[in-house]
Each structure stands twice: as C-alpha cells, then as structure tokens.
C-alpha cells in the first residue's frame, strides 16, 4: 500500500512539472498555430535564472520562481515579437526558426552559466522529508503538487472564465471573424505567448527541485512536453493537465514495476492514445 502511495505521489509531482511545461506550449499551438520548439529552452532559462537568484545570490526561493518566470516570459516575448509573428501560417519556417533558438539559447546558457549542471535546489522550508505511511517523502515534491494544482486552477480560470480567455478561444476557432469584431488579436497573442513562456520559466524553477538545471535540459524537456501534448490534446489546459498526470503516473509506476522497460512506458502510452484518439484525450477537434 505504501509503495503504491509513494509512487502515486512521485507520478503526480513529476506529472505536475510536465503539465506546467506542456500547458503553455499547448495553448500557443492551439491558439496561435505556432509550433514553438524553443519552449523547452525557455524552461531551461527559467531554471538557470531561478538558480542564480535563489542559490548564487541566496535570495528567497519565491523570488527565484518569479524572476525565472519573468526571464523566460520576456525571452519568449522577444522571440514572438521579433521573429515568430512574421511567420504565422508557415509551420516549416516556425519549426526551423524556433529550433534555431534552441541552439542559440543553449549556447548562450553554456557561455553564461558554464557546462557544469546545477544541483537540485529548493526553499529552506521545503528541504528535507516528512513521513508518509512510515516512509520518508520529500517535502519539495508535495509542494510541486500543490503549486501545480493552484496553477492549473488559475490557468483554467484564465482560459475559460475571463474575457481574455474568451478572446483566445474565439481566435482559435475563427481568427478572421474575431479580428473583424475589433479585437486586437495580435496583442492578445503576444500576451498569450508571454504567459506561456512565463509558465515555462516558472516550471523550470519548480522542476529544478527535482531535476536541477543543465544545458541539455531544453531538448530533453521539449520531448516530454510534446508527448504530454499529444496525449492530452492540443490547445487546452485541461488536456495538458490530464496528459501530464497520466504520463507522470505511468512513468513512475513503469519505473517501479518494470524498470527494464521504463524507457518505453510513456512512448507506449502515447502510441495507444494516438491509435484510439488521434486528437488527444481532451484535444480541441478541428
């Protein structure tokens, strides 16, 4: 029983990190039709900036979270305003350009932070473990689950219950009609891109509690984000949440029960979902 609980918690904490990285990317793909492969390196930028603030300068972890999110948000905004907005409806060019940013930002991080990985870090109050069913469990992981749930609610509220969210959803369904109603969709999209990048940066700092930060992270995390989006479906926060949790939990149990096949469990899940529901579990159908 305690092993099931521990692995469920492991899956949930890992799944929340996956949800946060995938949610922004999914909404950008769904709302703006932009395939931003630089989303993974925005996660990495957030992690590095958060590390600099919280570990190098010894500032509170919460400040590291905020600055990590802002750094990624503004970097994303520069990419969107400076480059990607000229490439709407040109998916091949978007892929090439955003993948170029993967290399640029990875090498910039190598130059700024060096090649040695930065160790997992967390707030002082979150370091150490608490006992769950007689076994030690890291407090930082429980915090990740809690923060993930709060952010999921906020993002869902933003998407489904606010005027901006309604504009984004309208733009997803019919861009021309929405613009015809006098909505400055370009500005809305810039805000969406900033928020998505901000969340990626935030996830970078939160995820650093588990993974640390290193300069290959951008590509590694991108692959995971794409799997979550495929499973959960493009364009919805709920889909990213479901996909993240599903992949996280399956991965945790796969590693615990079938360690030799751990590499394949999440890919196997993705294949099954693709066969049964090609648009993902909660994807918006065309």
């Amino acid at each position: 029983m305690e092993q099931v609980t521990i692995n469920l918690l492991n899956g949930l904490s890992y799944g929340m990190v996956l949800f946060l990285i995938a949610s922004g990317m999914s909404v950008v793909m769904g709302a703006m039709n932009i395939i931003n492969l630089a989303h993974g390196v925005l996660y990495m930028v957030g992690g590095y900036v958060g590390w600099t603030i919280a570990v190098k300068f010894g500032a509170p972890f919460a400040l590291g979270l905020l600055t990590g999110g802002l750094a990624a948000g503004f970097t994303g905004l520069v990419i969107e305003r400076g480059f990607l907005r000229h490439l709407y409806k040109q998916p091949n060019e978007q892929v090439l350009l955003s993948f170029g940013f993967v290399y640029i930002l990875t090498n910039l991080s190598l130059w700024v932070w060096g090649g040695w990985p930065r160790m997992p870090f967390t707030a002082k109050v979150l370091s150490g473990s608490i006992e769950i069913l007689g076994r030690a469990y890291p407090k930082a992981r429980l915090a990740i689950i809690l923060i993930g749930v709060i952010l999921a609610i906020v993002l869902w509220w933003l998407q489904d219950k606010t005027r901006v969210g309604a504009m984004v959803r309208a733009g997803m369904d019919n861009k021309e009609m929405t613009m015809g109603l006098g909505i400055n969709l370009e500005r809305v999209f810039a805000v969406v891109f900033f928020v998505a990048s901000f969340i990626a940066g935030l996830a970078g700092v939160l995820g650093a509690q588990l993974l640390g930060v290193y300069n290959a992270l951008g590509l590694e995390i991108l692959l995971l984000a794409l799997i979550v989006i495929i499973v959960g479906g493009v364009g919805s926060v709920q889909g990213a949440l479901l996909g993240g949790i599903l992949i996280g939990v399956i991965d945790a149990f796969g590693r615990a029960l079938f360690p030799k096949f751990a590499m394949f469990t999440m890919y196997f899940t993705m294949i099954i979902i693709l066969l049964v529901r090609p648009s993902g579990l909660l994807g918006r159908r065309a």
């Binding site: 492991n10 945790a252 590693r255 360690p259």
Partner: peptide, 17 residues
C-alpha cells in the same frame, strides 16, 4: 540489479523499490 535509462530525471520510483 536495477537498470535505469540514460537521462533518468526522477530516481524516486527506483529508490522506493
């Protein structure tokens, strides 16, 4: 003997077994 994939992000599930 527990075999873990290269690039393992989360060792938690292994440690618990």
């Amino acid at each position: 003997e527990v075999f873990v994939p290269v690039g393992t992000a989360d060792f938690g599930p292994y440690h618990s077994t």
